[in-house]
Amino acid sequence: MSVNADVKTADGGAASEFWSGARACVPVLVAVFPFGLLFGALAVDNGFSVGEAVLMSAIVYGGASQMVGIELFGQQIAPWLIVFSILAVNFRHVLYSGAFGRRIRHWSGVQQALGFFLLSDPQFAETERKAEDGHPVSFAWYMGFGAPVWAAWVIETALGGYFGGLVSDPHAIGLDFLLPIYFLGLVMGFRKRPLWLPVVLASSVASILAYKFVGSPWHVSIGAAAGILLAAVVSPTDVRKETDA
């Protein structure tokens, strides 16, 4: 309903799309806030300057991989191995990228290039949810969601770098467990998709086994592969129904 209105009034539509994206990103800002501070503080602790920490947040823009990167940096590991570890932690984005590319075929080349840069976990999940409701994903909405999250991440890194010991007892206020709760919410958001429960079960079991026997971060790729393969093998009869719906 509101989609038609947006298409007709292009300017007002883009602005309202942007604000609708900005409203949707508020829970992400809350969930990620402590980790931006934490990354800044840890980075300086491990020998980065505040400027280097901010540069990393601005251009790598992937929390978990940045944490692994500075952890290894602090241990004086060979530079190529640090870069390889960042690649390993971020490898799941290859899967996001394949799925996300289908949603933005109507964007210009520059818009797509920027869109892939901002393709973080929450950005991907929210975009998929929006596409699922049958709304085309507009560049304005995508930036409304992504620009505040990116800016907050960079600013928090600087704050954490300057005021390192800000958080005295992260455990007491639950900081270390906010992200699993948040990611669980994202998983629940896809429960209407075909084969959701079997996919979640397969990926849970496979990622836990891989976490124990192979080690982090490979449990992400291995666990994801299990769920995706299951869907690909079992699904084809259901698929046509779903794409029409």
Partner: peptide, 28 residues
């Protein structure tokens, strides 16, 4: 895109995001 690939891509969000939660249950 083959229907099986399409089905796999539709499973990507739940599959990947699950792996970011599941191992944390072990230490919880």
């Amino acid at each position: 895109i083959h229907p099986r690939v399409e089905a796999g891509l539709n499973a990507v969000p739940a599959a990947v995001l699950t792996t970011l939660v599941a191992p944390s249950v072990l230490s919880a």
